[in-house]
Amino acid sequence: MGRHIVCLTFDHDHLSGFIARGLTSPTAVSRGEYDMVVIPRLVALLARYDIKATFFTPGHTIDSSPQAVMPYVETGHELAHHGWTHRLPVTLSREEEEEEIVRGNDSIRRVSGRYARGYRSPAWDLSPHSIELLLKHGIQYDSSLMGHDYDCYYARQGDVVELKEPFVRGRETPLIEMPISWSLDDFPHFEYMRNPNGSIQAGLMNANAVLENFVDDFTYMTEVCPDFGILTYTFHPHVIGRGHRMMMLERLIKRLAAGGAAFMTMEQAMGEWLARRQAAAKAAD
């Protein structure tokens, strides 16, 4: 029987995502603060099924509301890097991006006792400098790219992308990419947003319909990757925390467990992926 790993991940943005969009009214702030109600419920749900998850948490969240972060830090979940603000790296200068990485890592170390091993870009949009800077500051894996569905790979640096020229791939780096997908993220499915530019994100999808999509992605992994695969789901506490969605999340956990899923943190899954690669390389020698 194959080994099929599931990583449940939570982007604990708190207020930072709204502030980065220029949404600072009392209503916007309250939407972010709702996660303080949800976090204890999430931690209890994960404990009920003996699951360790990964929380990608901006430094702004940690420094603004450490009481919202400590429930999952103290119960052994992985605390990973999600910037300090929730600004997209691609919108920042190299110096600004490095400041985000350093400041966010300092916030993580203060509450967890160690620097982050993993990173996820706010809104999943890396800059040309991101991979270099992440490696410089000791990050071992990234979870912002979408070049695979059920396998990790090594992130590239130095791609040449020009409109009227063939695409040229850069060199592989030691940074392990643990890919994600918007289709496995709760935010576009569920969150209703009226953005400052006037655009509307409708959200508010039926949770049971989304559940079927989420389960089918796991089932498909077991069929096309019978020996080994890793599947990552992304949730946001203030989004998944509504009652009917929490019930959906629990149903998801039950159905994945019944299908043979092994739940791990991202760091644990990375370790297993590396061990398998090393064993395969040794066997080939």
Rank of each mutant, 00 (worst) to 15 (best):
residue 159 D to F: 08
residue 159 D to P: 02
residue 159 D to L: 04
residue 159 D to E: 12
residue 162 E to F: 06
residue 163 L to P: 02
residue 163 L to Y: 14
residue 164 K to Q: 13
residue 165 E to M: 13
residue 167 F to N: 03
residue 167 F to P: 02
residue 167 F to E: 10
residue 167 F to M: 09
residue 168 V to G: 00
residue 168 V to Q: 12
residue 168 V to M: 09
residue 169 R to C: 00
residue 169 R to P: 05
residue 169 R to L: 12
residue 169 R to G: 03
residue 169 R to K: 11
residue 170 G to D: 05
residue 170 G to R: 03
residue 170 G to A: 06
residue 171 R to P: 04
residue 172 E to I: 01
residue 173 T to S: 00
residue 174 P to T: 10
residue 174 P to F: 05
residue 174 P to R: 11
residue 175 L to V: 06
residue 175 L to E: 01
residue 176 I to G: 07
residue 177 E to F: 00
residue 177 E to N: 08
residue 177 E to S: 10
residue 178 M to G: 01
residue 178 M to V: 12
residue 180 I to H: 02
residue 180 I to C: 06
residue 181 S to E: 07
residue 181 S to A: 15
residue 182 W to T: 02
residue 182 W to C: 01
residue 183 S to K: 13
residue 183 S to R: 11
residue 183 S to D: 15
residue 184 L to S: 02
residue 185 D to I: 10
residue 185 D to W: 09
residue 185 D to A: 00
residue 185 D to V: 00
residue 185 D to T: 08
residue 186 D to K: 03
residue 186 D to F: 08
residue 187 F to P: 07
residue 187 F to T: 08
residue 187 F to H: 04
residue 188 P to Q: 04
residue 188 P to N: 07
residue 188 P to F: 02
residue 189 H to L: 06
residue 189 H to C: 06
residue 190 F to Q: 01
residue 191 E to K: 04
residue 191 E to Y: 15
residue 191 E to R: 13
residue 191 E to L: 13
residue 192 Y to C: 05
residue 192 Y to F: 15
residue 192 Y to H: 15
residue 192 Y to K: 14
residue 192 Y to I: 03
residue 193 M to Y: 07
residue 193 M to D: 11
residue 194 R to P: 07
residue 194 R to A: 07
residue 195 N to Y: 10
residue 196 P to C: 04
residue 196 P to E: 08
residue 196 P to H: 09
residue 196 P to I: 00
residue 197 N to C: 02
residue 197 N to D: 15
residue 197 N to W: 04
residue 197 N to H: 02
residue 198 G to Q: 12
residue 198 G to H: 12
residue 198 G to N: 11
residue 199 S to R: 10
residue 199 S to N: 08
residue 199 S to I: 01
residue 199 S to E: 14
residue 200 I to Y: 14
residue 200 I to D: 12
residue 201 Q to D: 13
residue 201 Q to T: 10
residue 201 Q to L: 11
residue 202 A to T: 12
residue 202 A to V: 14
residue 203 G to F: 06
residue 203 G to M: 06
residue 203 G to K: 00
residue 203 G to I: 00
